[in-house]
Design a protein around this nucleic acid. Structure first.
Lengths: 335, 335
DNA sequence: CCGACTTTGTACAACGTTGTAGGCAACGTT
DNA sequence: AACGTTGCCTACAACGTTGTACAAAGTCGG
C-alpha cells in the first residue's frame, strides 16, 4: 500500500505540515524532529503523490517533447539529448509522436494530456504559425525551421548557410552536375526550402547554373524516398556527379540505389547528407554530412522552455541559433 | 486563462457536478441542460485538469515505457508501436530512457514520476528479478528476456528457436565456419545467452563443431561494438565464412569492417542479424535477419498492462510469446 | 525577570475534480 | 388525494498536498 503524509506524521508524532516541510527541505525544523520524520519516511517508503502536489502547486514538473517520428534517427538522437538536459534540471520529459500530421500536431500543441504538462518542446512539420497562436498559453519552444516568426521561442540552425557550405564542398571536389534530393513544394517544407536556397546559392558561388532537372522532390524524408528520388534521377538521364540530400536517411537511400545501379560513391557520384545520424558513420561508404550540435540544441530548448515556465511568459519570443559542423567522410572524400 | 468546472457551471447556470456529469457522459442530464453546458464548455474552451481528476480517481491515464536507449533503432521502432497501441485505448505513454544502467533502471521501475503513472512497460537490461520484487506494486510488463520467472507479466519471442533457425540458414548455405558476435558473460546478457544457445544448437544440428574462437563478445550492442568484434575475429586469423550477429546494429558494424578489409558479403562472409531494423533494408548489402513482430509485441504489452491495471493485480504473472519471421536478404543470399 | 524577537510547530483552507447522499418535481398507481 | 417511483439536479465531502496565519516555545538584551 502507498502511504501518505498523514501516515508518516502519525508515525513520527508530528503534524502533517511538518512532514511536508521536511520533504520540501524547509528550514526551521529542529534537527531532532527532522531526523525522526526522515526515519518514518524511510520506514514507510513514503513517496509524495505528484498529482496532489501538482494540483496544489499548479505545476506538474513534466514537459513534453513532440516529434514527428521516433524511428527517424535524427529525432531519436535529439530526444535523448532533450531528456538528458531536462533531467539535469529535475524535469521529466514525456515524449509524444505526432506522425507529422497536422491534426496530430494540433492535438499535441493544444496540450498533451491537457494540464499534465508545464511546457512543450515541439518539432512541427505541418503546423503553421496561426495554429500555434491559438494555444492556451502553454509555454512552447519550437525546433526546426517551420515557423519563421511564430509566437513562440525557437531553436534552429542556419540551414541556408549549412546547405551552402556542404554544396560548396561538393563543388570544390570538381563536381559540376550537383543534384539535390528532398525538395518539397508543400507548406510543410520549410527546411526543404531553406536547404534548397543554400544549395542554389552555392551553385552560384561556384559559377554553376541551376538546372531544375537535377532537383528531385521527396514528399517525406525516409530512406525509401531517397531511394525513389535517386532512381528517378538516374532514369531521367541527367547523370549527376554529386548529390546533396536534404537529410541523412535520404542519402542512405540514395547510396543504396547507386550501388544497385553499379555506380560507386564517391567515384561516380559523391553523396552528402544532413543531420549526422549514427548510421552515417558506419554506412558503406561512410556519409559526409552536416552535423548540427544536437546536444546543444536539446540543451538550449530546455533552457528556453524552463525560462519561459518559471519566468516571464509575456516576453517577446526569442530565436536561438545552434552551431553545426561539416563532417566529411568517404561518400565525398573516398577512402 | 484556464477555466474550471466552476466557471462553466456559472456560465451555464447549473451546479459544478452537473457540468462534471456532462463532461463524463453520465445519463440523467436533460438534453436541454446538456446542450447549455456543452455550449458553455465550448465557449470557455474548458479542459479538465488531469491532476485534480487523477487525485480524485487514483488513476492518471499515463503509462510509462522504459527502454535502454531510444537511438537504438529497435527500441525506437518498438516505442512507436507501443505508443500507437496505447493511444487506441486512450492511454498516454511517457517514454523514459534508462541508459541501461542498473541504477537508472531501478529508478524507472520504482515509479517514474512516482504517482504519475498507472503502469510500466519495461525493457530491462541490467535489472534482476529481485530488483523487481521490491516494487510498490505498480503494474509492470517486461519486454525481452531478462527475467525468466520474475514477478511480472512478460512479452518475449522465442530467442533460442529464432537464433537456431537463422544459424541453420547459414549452415544451409554451405558455410562451415560460422562465427557469432555479441556474446556476453554478464548477468545483463540474458538475450545473449539465449541466442548463443540457439546458435550452438544449430551447429549441432548441422553436424558442425563449436569453436570458442569463433564467438566474439560485445559488451553492448551498438554498431561500434559489432565493428570491433569483427575486427578482432579477422585479426585472430580464424577466418569465418559466416557471422551471426546477435542484433542488427552489431551486424551493420560487422558489414562495415568486412568492407574495410576488402571482404565481400555474402561471397566471402555471409552476415545475419537479429531485430529487423529499418536500416537493414537499405544497407549495402541488405541484411538478413530475424524479424520479431514488433507491432504485436507492443500491442500485447499494452493489453497485458491495461488488463493488470484494470483487473486482478494479484493474478499470477503471465508470459506471452510473440511470433517472428526469418527475413532473408542480400547479406546471406547475395543479389 | 520582563518584554521583544526568533524559532519551531500546528490548524485550517484551498487547489479542481468526482462519489455519495439526498432533494425536488413530475408522473402513474391505488 | 396520498403514495411510491423515476428523472434530474444539487450540496457536501474527500482525494493528498502546500501556503497562510498563528500559537507555543525558546532566546536575548536590558
Amino acid at each position: 500500500m502507498r502511504h501518505r503524509l498523514k501516515d508518516v506524521a502519525e508515525k513520527a508524532g508530528v503534524s502533517v505540515k511538518t512532514v511536508s516541510n521536511v520533504v520540501n527541505g524547509y528550514q526551521h525544523v529542529r534537527p531532532t524532529t527532522r531526523a525522526r520524520v526522515e526515519e518514518a519516511i524511510a520506514e514507510l517508503n513514503y513517496r509524495p503523490n505528484l498529482s496532489a502536489r501538482n494540483l496544489r502547486k499548479g505545476r506538474t514538473g513534466v514537459i513534453a517533447l513532440a516529434v514527428p517520428e521516433l524511428d527517424i534517427p535524427y529525432f531519436a538522437e535529439l530526444a535523448r539529448h532533450v531528456v538528458v538536459a531536462a533531467a539535469e534540471q529535475g524535469w521529466t520529459v514525456l515524449i509524444d509522436q505526432t506522425g507529422g500530421s497536422r491534426e496530430q500536431e494540433r492535438v499535441a500543441a493544444s496540450g498533451i494530456g491537457d494540464h499534465l504538462i508545464d511546457g512543450l518542446i515541439f518539432s512541427p512539420l505541418a503546423l503553421t504559425a496561426e495554429d500555434l497562436t491559438g494555444l492556451d498559453g502553454t509555454p512552447t519552444v519550437l525546433l526546426g525551421e517551420r515557423v519563421d516568426h511564430g509566437p513562440a521561442d525557437h531553436v534552429m540552425i542556419d540551414n541556408v548557410a549549412a546547405a551552402r557550405e556542404i554544396t560548396t564542398h561538393l563543388a570544390g571536389l570538381g563536381r559540376r552536375r550537383i543534384a539535390a534530393i528532398g525538395s518539397q513544394r508543400t507548406v510543410e517544407g520549410a527546411s526543404a526550402r531553406l536547404r534548397l536556397a543554400g544549395y542554389r546559392a552555392a551553385l552560384t558561388d561556384a559559377g554553376l547554373g541551376y538546372d531544375e532537372r537535377l532537383v528531385a522532390p521527396a514528399p517525406v524524408w525516409h530512406r525509401a524516398d531517397g531511394a525513389a528520388a535517386m532512381r528517378d534521377l538516374l532514369a531521367s538521364g541527367v547523370r549527376p556527379d554529386a548529390v546533396f540530400c536534404f537529410n541523412d536517411t535520404l542519402a542512405l537511400g540514395a547510396l543504396r540505389v547507386l550501388h544497385e545501379h553499379g555506380l560507386r560513391a564517391p567515384d561516380d557520384v559523391a553523396v552528402a547528407g544532413f543531420d549526422d545520424i549514427e548510421d552515417g558513420r558506419f554506412s558503406i561508404p561512410t556519409l559526409s554530412t552536416i552535423a548540427p550540435d544536437k546536444e546543444r540544441i536539446g540543451r538550449l530548448a530546455v533552457e528556453l522552455l524552463v525560462g519561459r515556465i518559471e519566468g516571464d511568459r509575456e516576453a517577446p519570443p526569442r530565436t536561438v541559433t545552434a552551431p553545426y559542423r561539416l563532417e566529411l567522410r568517404e561518400s565525398t572524400l573516398g577512402r
